[in-house]
Each structure stands twice: as C-alpha cells, then as structure tokens.
C-alpha cells in the first residue's frame, strides 16, 4: 500500500514466505488479499454491513453462489465477535455502528478474504477503553488463526497482547525479540531509554 503515498521510501527487504513483497513482478492484488489491513480510524464503506463484509469476497470471486457468500459473511462477523450484535440488521449502514463496532467490522472485512497476515495500524487509538478492551480480546482470539502485526504507541498494550515486539525509532529498527525480554531486559540502550520513559 506504500505506493499510494508518494513520499514513502523503503530500504531493506520485507518478505512474506521468503518472497520479497517489493519485487516488481509480484502481483499486488494477490498480496493485498493475503495481507489484510486494519486502519487507525475505522473506515467502513458507506454500504450495508453485509455489503461491507461481502466486498472482498465478491471482487476476488471467493463465493460461487449467494449461500456461500452468506456463509462467509456470517463466519467473518462471528470470528470478529460482531455476529450476535448485528445479525438482525445486516442491511443497516456500516457507518451507523459505534466506533468500536466499526473497527470490529473492519477487522471482519479483512478476515473475509481469508488472509494469512493481518496488519493493524494503531487499531485502538480512536476508541474508548471499553471498545479497546473488546478489540484487544478479539485480537487475542484471532492470533490462533492469523499472524497479526500491530503498530501501537502504548507500551502497555504491547506488553498485554503481543508475543514478540519490535522497537522502531525514527524509521530504524532498533531491536526485536520476545515481548518479555524486550520489556524486562532490553539489549539496546535506546530501547532501555524508551521503556524507562527517558524519552518518548
């Protein structure tokens, strides 16, 4: 998605299953379906809840008939923990939900195309604490099935819900390791300074 930002510059390699994702011969459309993304501010389409979830499967032709599509939608909503809340109003606009519900809708939307990895860009920063708790619980549920990478500015959140943590500073990767190790005995000095609150 970085090509939509004109001033973005990337050095080094990022690989998914040993394939460089910036390889020009790589099909971006497939990649983006395999790597789902959830944005900082919830951005449901101004369509019905059903159509929001069904959008991805429809464009990729993942369902050969409508009952299959119904099943995919129901599954995704269920996995995102929204099914019980919206199952009676699937035709309502996606934008009519509360902030926390919208974010879970976006997560359900990303799940609907059966990704392998889900990227989340500060998924809870626009939410109140109760919604945050719900989303964090959801992430805990999902981690059994998908590889999830979260960007967060909250160290507490990182410590709460992650198994591995990477610390970036001004565009450089400083340290990466097991969460417990990063937070109790970081190897790099910058990491230590950040964790103890000397800056940031």
């Amino acid at each position: 998605m970085n090509e939509t930002i004109p001033t973005c510059r990337v050095t080094g390699h990022i690989t998914l299953d040993d394939q460089d994702i910036y390889d020009p011969t790589l099909d971006v459309v497939r990649l983006r379906a395999r790597v789902g993304m959830v944005f900082q501010k919830p951005n449901p389409f101004p369509k019905s809840i059903y159509d929001n979830i069904a959008y991805g499967p429809r464009i990729h032709g993942l369902a050969s008939h409508s009952t299959e599509l119904d099943e995919i939608v129901a599954n995704s909503l269920d996995r995102a923990g929204l099914w019980s809340e919206v199952k009676d109003r699937l035709d309502d606009a996606g934008t009519a939900l509360s902030g926390g519900q919208q974010q879970r809708l976006c997560i359900a939307r990303a799940i609907a195309v059966d990704p392998e990895v889900i990227l989340m860009d500060e998924p809870c920063s626009a939410l109140d604490p109760i919604a945050t708790a719900k989303v964090e619980a959801l992430i805990e549920d999902l981690k059994g099935r998908y590889a999830i990478a979260i960007v967060t500015h909250s160290m507490q959140q990182a410590a709460r819900i992650s198994q591995k943590t990477a610390f970036f500073h001004l565009g450089d990767l400083i340290e990466i390791g097991e969460t417990k190790q990063i937070f109790t005995s970081p190897k790099e000095e910058k990491t230590r300074d950040y964790i103890t609150g000397r800056f940031g």
Partner: peptide, 23 residues
C-alpha cells in the same frame, strides 16, 4: 466459531489467475 465449510483460498488456481488477469 462456526464450523468452517469453506476451503482455504487457492490464490494460484487457474480460475483465480484468469480472474485477476481480467481485472
């Protein structure tokens, strides 16, 4: 979670490839 009756997606099947080409 409900029982998943849908197969995992094969992103490199001929149908998928043809579809992507059309798009």
């Amino acid at each position: 979670t409900k029982k998943n009756s849908i197969k995992p997606t094969d992103w490199h099947s001929p149908e998928m490839t043809a579809r992507i080409k059309t798009r």
